[in-house]
């Protein structure tokens, strides 16, 4: 039975590692590779470097005070520290992404290299720089690759949240910072996950969570900077993903701990991704370090 728990965690990640390296070499010509170690959240370069023209993001950010949390994957005793950071209150919208590609033509649909996005990249758009009428400008952008998401974040002086940061925020419900033990909250997430075509809805129409963050579950799956770090961690142990780790998480799934079902779904989604994939219900939001002065956010 453990195999079922591991099923989604199996794709060969080597190619992604290679592609990631390639991009760092080619695009940003600097190497600051994201650590796979969940114990520390390393900073990604923010602000402007060569070849990335700055644009302004009007999306409000809120401060998430750091803390320790128990990751979905990992041994029972390992608590992970998340340092304070700022996160977008909603996913990046079609309108924002449109502004980005207007000023960054290399990320337009007809210019983007296949290495950085598959053939479904922004496929619903009527041209490189125009949205169809039936797509709302303030609905989350989808069909964007991890590379494109990272490029957008860089252009607005931000970065993608790490998996730990994202999951840390995801623990909150409307009234508490950690609702993992509440069954009603868990059920609510699953209910939202199962709704089709919800990615076409506008952002911030539902209630914000404890931190003031909207749309963590009800619109799109979201890229994280290290979306496959669990796999990389496992791989770094010599490919011995013997179920031990996963089985732990699996063992935690019980009738009263249904949240793990929602988390299983998220991790399974992430595990099926490659960095150049674009998916109809997969978008992203941005984060930024507390010590960044790039945009002078109130902290």
């Amino acid at each position: 039975m453990p195999k079922y728990l591991t099923t989604a965690l199996s794709q060969n990640r080597t190619d992604i590692m290679n592609q990631s390296f390639l991009v760092y070499f080619l695009l940003f010509s600097s190497i600051m590779f994201t650590s796979c170690d969940r114990q520390e959240v390393k900073q990604m370069p923010v602000g402007n470097t060569e070849n990335v023209a700055a644009i302004t993001s009007n999306t409000k950010m809120v401060k998430i005070p750091g803390g320790k949390y128990k990751p979905f994957y990992g041994s029972d005793t390992s608590m992970t520290t998340v340092t304070s950071f700022l996160i977008d209150v909603n996913p990046v919208t079609n309108g924002e992404f449109l502004e980005f590609v207007k000023t960054h033509p290399e990320w337009q649909r007809s210019n983007i290299k296949r290495l950085y996005a598959d053939s479904n990249y922004l496929k619903d758009w009527i041209s490189d720089t125009a949205l169809p009428k039936d797509i709302k400008a303030d609905a989350p952008v989808c069909n964007v690759s991890w590379y494109a998401a990272k490029a957008f974040a860089k252009a607005v002086g931000k970065r993608l949240p790490t998996l730990d940061e994202w999951e840390f925020v995801a623990m909150a419900d409307e009234t508490t910072d950690n609702a993992r033990s509440k069954k009603s909250y868990s059920d609510h997430i699953i209910d939202q996950y199962l709704i089709k075509n919800r990615q076409f809805n506008q952002v911030r129409q539902s209630k914000a969570n404890y931190w003031g963050v909207y749309n963590m579950f009800d619109l799109v799956w979201e890229w994280t900077d290290d979306f496959n770090s669990v796999l990389m961690t496992l791989e770094s142990r010599g490919g011995d993903y013997s179920d031990n780790n996963l089985f732990c998480a699996g063992g935690a799934t019980s009738a009263t701990d249904i949240l793990n079902y929602a988390a299983f779904m998220r991790f399974s989604m992430r595990a099926g991704l490659k960095a150049n994939y674009t998916v109809a219900n997969l978008g992203f939001r941005c984060a930024i370090n507390m010590d960044s002065s790039a945009l002078g956010f109130n902290k």
């Binding site: 195999k3 989604a8 099926g272 998916v279 219900n281």
Partner: peptide, 27 residues
């Protein structure tokens, strides 16, 4: 909305194919 895969009990190999067939929407 979700990723899917297939585990065939007729298959000899890891996960019965599940690990090799994990497909996100559209893939």
């Amino acid at each position: 909305v979700l990723p899917h895969n297939i585990d065939l009990h007729a298959v000899t190999g890891p996960g019965g194919g599940a690990e090799a067939t994990s497909a996100v929407p559209g893939k």
